[in-house]
Design a protein around this nucleic acid. Sequence first.
DNA 1: CAATCACGAAAAATCGATTTATCCATTTCT
DNA 2: AGAAATGGATAAATCGATTTTTCGTGATTG
Lengths: 346, 346
Amino acid sequence: MAHRQGQQRRASIHDVASHAGVSAATVSKVMAGVTTVKPENAQRVFDAVELLGYRVDPLASDMRRAKRRIIGAIVPEFESEFFGQMVTQLESLAEQRGYTLVAASSRESEARETEILARMHDWRVAGVVLAPVRNEHGPAAAFMKVNGMTGVLIDRVLSDDAFDTVSADSAAASAEVARELLGKGHRHILVVGLGEQAATIRARLDGFRSTALKLAPDVRIDVVLAETDVEPLRAQLRDYFAKGERPTAVYSLFLKGTLVALSEFRRRGWHCPNDISLVGFDDAEWMQVTWPAIAAVVQPVRQIAGHAMEALFARIEGGEGPPIARLEPCKVLMRESVGSPGNGSH
Amino acid sequence: MAHRQGQQRRASIHDVASHAGVSAATVSKVMAGVTTVKPENAQRVFDAVELLGYRVDPLASDMRRAKRRIIGAIVPEFESEFFGQMVTQLESLAEQRGYTLVAASSRESEARETEILARMHDWRVAGVVLAPVRNEHGPAAAFMKVNGMTGVLIDRVLSDDAFDTVSADSAAASAEVARELLGKGHRHILVVGLGEQAATIRARLDGFRSTALKLAPDVRIDVVLAETDVEPLRAQLRDYFAKGERPTAVYSLFLKGTLVALSEFRRRGWHCPNDISLVGFDDAEWMQVTWPAIAAVVQPVRQIAGHAMEALFARIEGGEGPPIARLEPCKVLMRESVGSPGNGSH
DNA sequence: CAATCACGAAAAATCGATTTATCCATTTCT
DNA sequence: AGAAATGGATAAATCGATTTTTCGTGATTG
């Protein structure tokens, strides 16, 4: 761990200045690419920089600046494909603009979310992409407002009076799922979800229900909504089926719910789509290689990330005007896990 | 976006000092929790801090410090469950010690890896957890050495002469897979992998092959190794099967390979385990809810993260001694996708 | 030929803290 | 009583840059 090279102090602008025989101010100008420096001196500075392996110290450099070329990203978790792809996209887009993305996860805690935000504020980030734990009305968004931070809210949000928002058009996608399922003849459908993420889940549920009822007023829609965690949902679902309920299709409003549903089907020996149909919000790579392939609503991650960054940079560069709420269309992939009721063997 | 509060300049230590009627030095001491301050003055400082909403500016505060309470984490990608869980764990462990974790992804590029590392060095991180793209001999580890950075290498590494390493015991896990498959009677096995990640993939392949050959010298082991990307692997695999090769089991050395194998099986209408058996390195949540459940090697993410952070903090706190290479044991879950050859219908 | 400009570079102020050196009152010791 | 020690606070130096101001020199102009 101890190395000759590593021991010596990092070269400062003054070291470069004295090696090049100029003042620190001149070095600073050369590094900034200012043209009012005699080419000869500039060259000596470049040589000294090369020789000493000098790099501008961002801590010192940024101290006088109001904002740094850093974008903060806060997501509820890193463990899902969705947020993993989201952070990857955001990171790549930030890099393209010469910004550095600093990512952190709130791990589904609003308190942590606000703490991270405060820290990012201390770091003077130029802007923040926040995927709130719950919705746009939490303490984190409030903190951003009070402190005049620049930011964009994504995913579990609908619209806000202070920040631009970008999210998947959950309601429209749910409506399409409703059309598909009813079109196949389903008249008893179970919807499973997790309540905490209010904004999105509500949109998904309402979008589904209203469209379904419009198409077939006699349709029966059961809802199993857990408050916070996955395990209670599993228990509730187990109870539901244990009571003898036999919907012909299940629509899961989020990925974990799809997994829970599948594992319950498995436990009971039900196969898709013969015994029951299944559609889930959120696609995953594995869903197209399983038997059956699982039908899913694909969220447009790239579009959400792209428009979020576009909106954010527009604000960073001083863009004015009322906040814009974008809804990006989803794609619904009806795979083999969905069939018509009554084709099964039970 | 414009708010009264947000407009006004952030309070500095001097603002607090003048409000409290003391010097900036005194404020600094109070903030640092030094006891040699008259309680009365300390109280006035606290009041002023409260009133002005003062927070220490980390940029200024850290400027004189050699190291900041920041840990950098660099992973090859954010999109897999494995690295998602890893970053989550690392973040949580850093938080427990009062450090902030800054995560970034190299997106499978060694150049980017080194750039990120240089940036983190500029930020004076206290230490780095690096999951290198390829192995411990890349430019990133070299950079860390030259610059005397404190760090730990994880995942795609075996051991290093400068840094502690922590990774899954790929060889042992592969050996166990070999025992399981041979025990079930398999004598023609295909191993699929991606070559770039040299360190790990090689260990997995060698561990499998040596054990298999020891147990049954007559076993036939085919290997399909793609260089860099997934699509070439898919093509190679397709060719392999098209030639009429019919191994009775496939062992995939990494998650994406498992997906590729499954999708090829699907294309050809083969079912596990009747037509062919499948085991994959890397577990995922969905593998236990599909039909059949997919056998997998579970990497001990928590242990790897835990020991990596332990080792890192030991070094940060000045721990000396030669670098330690840890191998964490994996668990092999033999699920339904593995059976005995010849039980099938083809 | 003296006065004004332009150019390039250096000196000094600044950013917001921390830390060292100093200073002033008391209190304690001889 | 005078010297030394102590507690508590402040002034000043420092970290490593950027930015503003100042300065000197040579070129242009009235």
